[in-house]
Simulated scan of single mutants.
Amino acid sequence: MNEAIRIRHAEPVDAGGLYTLFSERGAYAGTLQPPFPSLAAWQNALADLPKHIVQLVAIDDHGALVGGAGFEVFQNPRRRHAANLGMAVAQSRQAQGIGAQLLQAVIDTAERWHGVRRLELEVYTDNAPGIALYERHGFVREGIARGYALRDGDYVDVHLMARHAPATSA
């Protein structure tokens, strides 16, 4: 598919699209989002998003929301150089480069506009496509957290991964 994908900051009007995205089994099984999300929760979150949280969306050329990615810059003074990210792409739109576009937009926004030097994430150890995507964008595996999260009745492991921003020239 050669359709144009537009990445932009999420707006309150995107609540329905994010609700639909995170209602997909693949999205809540692959992230820490709970199943059966609330539309009202997405509406409330987008209506009053704190300045240290950035939520981006991927919109296709038909105007459909096909992915979302966000990051939260830590507020502890000793960790303000770091942020944690999460993302999901609609199941029907995976393996089309949307995740790569979203991830690159997150990296650029976090590093170039929020001063993030360390971007962290957790990815399930059985998510080979996700791990490969992150590694292509400079993330490295720093460890495994055993029994990290409950997923469909089982406690599963995650890779702890991080990307360190390149040193800037003075």
Rank of each mutant, 00 (worst) to 15 (best):
P50S: 13
R117P: 03
A58S: 12
F22V: 02
I5M: 08
A4Q: 15
A149Y: 11
E24H: 05
N44S: 15
A95D: 13
A165I: 10
I7W: 00
H114K: 03
S169E: 13
T20L: 13
L21M: 04
Q96I: 02
L133E: 04
P12R: 08
E122M: 07
A4I: 12
G63M: 06
I5L: 09
A95I: 06
D61R: 05
F74N: 07
L102C: 02
L46R: 13
A100D: 05
P129I: 05
D108W: 07
F71S: 08
S38M: 10
F74D: 02
M161E: 10
H81A: 06
V57K: 01
L85E: 01
I107W: 09
V106E: 01
Q75L: 13
E122R: 08
M161F: 11
V89E: 00
D108T: 15
D154W: 05
L49F: 03
A69L: 11
N84A: 12
R151V: 15
R8T: 04
T109N: 12
T125I: 08
Y124G: 05
G86K: 04
A82V: 03
E3K: 06
H164W: 13
V57W: 07
P34E: 02
A58G: 11
W113E: 14
A41M: 14
A64N: 06
A105F: 07
G147Q: 13
F36I: 10
G99R: 02
T125G: 03
P12G: 07
N2V: 02
L56R: 02
G68R: 02
Q43C: 11
V140A: 15
G16C: 08
V158W: 07
V73P: 00
T125A: 03
E72W: 01
N127D: 12
L49M: 15
T20A: 15
R163F: 04
Q101H: 13
N127H: 13
H62S: 11
R118W: 08
P35L: 04
S38N: 14
A82Y: 05
A162S: 12
S92N: 09
A64R: 09
Q43H: 10
Y19Q: 01
Q43G: 09
A110M: 00
Y155V: 05
R93N: 11
I144M: 08
E3I: 06
P34H: 05
T109K: 11
R79A: 07
V66C: 06
T31K: 03
G30T: 06
L85G: 00
S23A: 09
G99Q: 04
H159V: 01
Q55C: 06
A27V: 01
M161L: 12
V140F: 06
L49V: 10
R78Y: 11
W113M: 13
A41T: 10
G63L: 07
I5Y: 01
P35G: 08
A132L: 08
A95Y: 05
Y19D: 06
H81W: 05
N76H: 14
Y19W: 15
T168E: 14
F22C: 02
L102V: 00
P129L: 01
M1C: 12
G130A: 12
Q91H: 14
L18F: 03
T20Q: 14
A149D: 03
Y148V: 00
D61Y: 04
A100E: 04
P129M: 04
H62D: 10
S23G: 11
P12S: 09
T109L: 12
H81D: 02
F71V: 13
L32S: 13
V156S: 00
D126N: 10
F36H: 15
F139Q: 07
